[in-house]
Structure formats: structure tokens, C-alpha cells
Amino acid sequence: VTTYKLVINGKTLKGETTTKAVDAETAEKAFKQYANDNGVDGVWTYDDATKTFTVTEMV
């Protein structure tokens, strides 16, 4: 189990959260659900070296 981080660069919501998951795919599903629940829709990137997902909403 690995800890993954999500950085949110939203128009109205900004911040970070973490989740523990067995792999990046599982973490991504959890983060996308979290973003969807919070009304964040944007471009996703993932950095495997730092285990960090970033979602950026276009203005």
C-alpha cells in the first residue's frame, strides 16, 4: 500500500489531499471521484516519481 497525493488547482477549490491505495490506478479512481464530488473538472497529470496526481481546471 502506497500513499498518493492529489494537488487540486481548481477555479474555486485549491488544495491537497492524500489517499492510500494498492496502485496508482486505484488512487486515480478515488481522486477522480473526490474531484467529481467537489465539482472539479480539469486536466489530469501524474508524476510517478513523487506519486502525485494534479488536476488543473482551465479558466
Rank of each mutant, 00 (worst) to 15 (best):
N38E: 09
G42R: 01
Q33W: 05
K11Q: 14
T3C: 07
E25D: 15
E28R: 11
K29F: 08
V7N: 05
A24I: 13
T18Y: 14
A27K: 00
V7S: 04
T50F: 06
T45I: 12
D23Q: 05
G15F: 15
G10T: 15
M58L: 13
L13Q: 05
G39T: 06
V43G: 09
N38D: 03
V1F: 09
G42P: 01
T19Q: 09
T45N: 10
T45S: 11
D47N: 05
K32S: 05
E25Q: 12
E25R: 11
T50P: 02
I8Y: 12
K14D: 07
V7C: 04
A49G: 13
K5N: 07
E57D: 06
Y34W: 06
D41I: 11
T3E: 09
K14E: 13
V59L: 13
V22R: 15
E25C: 05
I8M: 12
T2K: 11
K51I: 03
D47A: 05
T26Y: 14
K29R: 12
T52Y: 02
A49R: 08
T3M: 08
E28Y: 14
W44D: 00
E57Q: 05
D47H: 06
G10I: 15
A35F: 03
T12C: 08
K20H: 10
Y4V: 00
A30N: 13
G39Y: 13
T19A: 08
V1D: 14
G42Y: 02
E28H: 15
T50V: 09
V40C: 04
A21H: 04
A27Q: 01
K32M: 13
D41M: 07
M58T: 13
E25Y: 15
T50G: 07
K51H: 10
D41R: 10
T52A: 04
M58R: 09
D47W: 04
V40T: 03
F31W: 02
A27G: 02
N36A: 11
A24R: 14
A49N: 09
T17R: 15
V1Q: 13
K20Y: 13
A27P: 01
V43P: 04
F31I: 02
V59Y: 11
V40R: 02
A27S: 02
T54R: 05
D23R: 04
K11W: 10
T52F: 02
Q33V: 10
T50D: 10
A35P: 01
A49V: 12
D37G: 06
G15H: 15
N38H: 12
A49P: 09
K51F: 09
K14N: 09
T3Y: 09
A21Q: 09
A30R: 06
T54H: 05
N38P: 01
F31V: 03
V43A: 11
A27F: 01
E28L: 14
T26C: 05
V59N: 11
K11I: 15
V40I: 15
V59R: 03
D37C: 04
A21K: 03
T3V: 14
V40D: 01
E16I: 03
V40N: 02
N36E: 15
L6V: 04
V40E: 02
K5P: 00
K51Q: 11
E28M: 10
D37R: 07
G42I: 02
L6G: 01
A49H: 12
G10Q: 07
T3L: 12
G39R: 10
K5C: 04
E57W: 06
V43T: 12
A21E: 06
K29C: 04
A35S: 08
V1S: 11
Y46A: 01
N38R: 14
T26A: 15
V1Y: 13
G39A: 09
T52G: 02
Y46T: 01
N9L: 14
K29S: 13
T45R: 06
V55E: 00
T12G: 13
D48M: 11
I8Q: 02
T26Q: 09
D37S: 09
I8A: 03
W44C: 01
T19E: 10
A30E: 13
A21D: 03
A21N: 03
D23S: 08
A35N: 08
L13G: 08
V59G: 07
K20R: 11
D23W: 04
N36G: 09
K51S: 05
K11N: 13
E25K: 07
V55P: 00
D41H: 07
T52V: 08
E16P: 02
M58P: 12
N9Q: 09
T3N: 11
E28N: 08
T54M: 06
V55D: 00
T2D: 12
E28V: 06
K51T: 04
F31R: 00
G42F: 02
A27R: 00
T45K: 08
D48G: 10
V22E: 06
N38S: 09
F31L: 08
K11L: 12
G15Q: 13
L6T: 01
T3P: 05
V7I: 08
F53R: 00
T56A: 06
G15L: 14
A49F: 13
F31G: 00
N9M: 14
T50N: 11
G42N: 01
T26E: 09
E57T: 03
D47T: 06
M58Q: 11
V1H: 12
L13P: 02
Q33G: 09
G15D: 14
T52P: 00
T18F: 11
K20V: 15
Y4D: 00
W44T: 01
T12S: 15
Q33Y: 11
K11G: 08
T50I: 11
V22Q: 14
V40A: 05
L13S: 06
D48R: 08
E57A: 04
A24M: 11
A49Y: 09
N9W: 09
V22H: 06
A30Q: 07
K32G: 03
A21T: 06
W44I: 03
E28C: 04
M58D: 11
E57M: 03
D48A: 14
A21L: 03
E57H: 04
T19K: 06
G39W: 07
Y46G: 00
T52N: 02
T54I: 12
W44S: 01
I8V: 14
F31T: 00
T2P: 15
K14H: 15
D48Y: 13
W44P: 00
T50H: 11
T54E: 08
K5E: 03
T2V: 09
T54P: 00
N36M: 12
V1M: 10
A35K: 01
A24Q: 12
N9S: 13
K29H: 12
F31C: 02
